[in-house]
Amino acid sequence: MTSLILSTATTYLLPLLLLLSVYLLLHGHDVPGGGFVGGVVAAAAFALYAIAHGVEEARRVLHTHPRTLIGLGLLTALLSGVIAFVSNEPFLKGLWTTVTLPVEWKLGTPTLFDVGVYLVVVGVTLMIIFSVAED
């Protein structure tokens, strides 16, 4: 399906939705949000792109195979647990540090775990959507 309105709108919506998904991911600690919601929004952005421009084009924009994202996400989540383990704390214990960028930013292993969840959700959802859409 080629629709000029849809494909033009999607070109601008994709970066906007990805920005929103990262915002939800990083914001999700003290307020509603988090890795899962962010991942779903990012996957919806790519699904919209696949509807507007075709699945092949969406795969090209994603750069990697969704399977790679699943693997990366699981490794990131594992890493967040191992960091606590190697510093003589229980496995997966949340360790926090404060990074002072221009704004003060609380960074910790739960954030890293959320990044892992985000990547796994994006990978799994896109793998399902792409394979269903290609039939």
Partner: peptide, 8 residues
């Protein structure tokens, strides 16, 4: 936040 996600 919910409203903006729903809108997009």
């Amino acid at each position: 936040n919910v409203a903006s996600v729903m809108a997009l």
